[in-house]
Design a binder for these strands. Structure first.
Lengths: 144, 144
DNA sequence: TTCTAATAGGATAATTTTGTCCGATTTAAG
DNA sequence: CTTAAATCGGACAAAATTATCCTATTAGAA
């Protein structure tokens, strides 16, 4: 459903947010370790998220990544998915039919529309804070 | 959502079924042309569908692909997706979380379950015949 | 100032997916 | 029997995604 890059991005953002709630800025190394992702690849994804103002990066010694409390409240999962995967999840006919649209729908068109709308709605209505709050039970939880 | 291979497979099967309804056996060349897919790649996919008894292939001169009327009634889209993409669409947590399950769900777990169930249900309840019947309006429709 | 720990970013590599090529095989028709 | 039209299947190639490596840059602390 999502690319690997996007999954890593969602997990990374979630972990950063969780630690930021405790006032801890976290390093790339720690993030990759905790979310069980390849470190250098995760670095690329975090660069992307940083450029999209989704996470804040701090260079140099004692640097790392963090997310402000206001940001994790405002930020929806859809913003993360959008930054990494774009709108590919929602785009076009589910079966790849070119001329399938509301005017000339394929037999499963409306079902696909419903399913994708549910997905979009979920992503647009879930903030990163809600995500982290629901996960506070255990740290190892973010491991893939 | 589906791989390219799977989209081609669904379109190819749909086109074959449509033509079979008119008693026409169709060649690989015609299929690839009509569904706008790479011919050699489509051949591989049709081999796979043939091995999975989803379409019937006839070798030699005047050969090609066809699907019997009883088969297109029985066959659900889920069988095609399963043959090509396996169960990757339904498998695991949507965010790639390892220990995310019904016992210890992530905040979006149940939403993902719902969305995937809707998808599965649609695929399992739509026969290839229904698919073709809904498309009989126009042939060019299958072009991607 | 210098050292050290950290992110930034470009180049490269491995893997997977997508796509192509070509010879072998099959089968109907002449 | 020969030929032509078709699928089968193995090897190969290209493109996209995933992943790694290395150097540059940044910034805090001694």
């Amino acid at each position: 459903m999502f690319s690997k890059a996007c999954e890593y991005g969602l997990r990374a953002a979630t972990y950063i947010a969780m630690q930021s709630l405790d006032g801890r800025r976290v390093s790339l190394k720690e993030i990759a370790d905790k979310i069980d992702s390849p470190i250098a690849f995760t670095a690329k994804i975090l660069q992307l998220l940083s450029k999209n103002n989704i996470v804040e990066s701090v260079k140099g010694a004692y640097g790392g990544f963090e997310i402000s409390r206001t940001q994790m409240d405002k930020l929806k999962l859809s913003a993360i998915v959008d930054a990494i995967d774009g709108d590919t999840i929602y785009a076009g006919c589910g079966l790849g039919l070119k001329e399938c649209n509301a005017d000339k729908p394929c037999p499963v068109h409306s079902k696909f529309v419903d399913i994708r709308n549910d997905l979009r709605e979920m992503l647009e209505n879930t903030s990163l804070y809600e995500m982290t709050a629901g996960l506070e039970v255990g740290l190892t939880f973010l491991k893939r």
